[in-house]
Amino acid sequence: MSGARKGPTFIQLAPWIYTAALFLLWEGAVRLFDLPVTFLPAPTRIAEAIVQYWGPIWTNSLQTLYTTLLGFVLAMVGGLAIGLLIGWSRSIYAGLYPLMIGFNAIPKVAVVPILIIWFGIGSIPAIITAFLISFFPIVVNVATGLATIEPETEDILRALGAKKMDIMIKVGIPRSMPYFFASLKVAITLAFVGSVLSETVGSNTGLGNMMAAAQSRFNVPLVFAGLVMLAIEGIVMYAIMAWVERRMTGWAHRSSM
């Protein structure tokens, strides 16, 4: 056991080492080629900007986190519900699936102006965009989990007199949970894309808005500071979702499903 100790420790450290290496390379390249700060600011310059503008960065980060999470939670609830509905009935599947594919194919950037017309400038368009963009992968995953129930399992239960609802509760829903939780990791990152997109196109708050404003004033270090904050929020939320996934559906990783 103690011999195997060394491997995992290095693997655990690897993300930090690689991240540090990236920033070092970046810093070195900027200094070596003497890149202008309006083109690519060095990490130290970005850190300065973070300290200097900490007040607005913090409020805008919270604002983006808030709209993203709200949109994501809506997508989680709605995606689970629609996914189960689609998996429940062949006719609902046949009717809804093409609609959703079409809807998902619409570039969300084209939807934001409409949302602003309907709901005005503010948090609501960002929440809805985050919802719209992260909803689809959840639906598809949940429906896949239901669609791949072994026919024999269904036969055994139906032969015992199981109603569709019984099969759904005893097999369908638990079986689709690993698919559901796996989709949350994808969905949370997409939700950030949605909310920032909406904030950038038309809003007066959030990191997207802050970065758009900084860009128009050629404050490039602040733009990058916004990007760093987004990356941090994205990684933290992803890690939380990955942890939730492991906690909720540990059995799926051990069995060969």
């Binding site: 072994e150 399992t153 055994i156 005893k170 638990p174 079986r175 559906t249 059995w251 799926a252 499903m257």
Partner: peptide, 8 residues
């Protein structure tokens, strides 16, 4: 033939 135990 396939025992299909529910893994959870």
């Amino acid at each position: 033939q396939n025992p299909i135990m529910l893994p959870w």
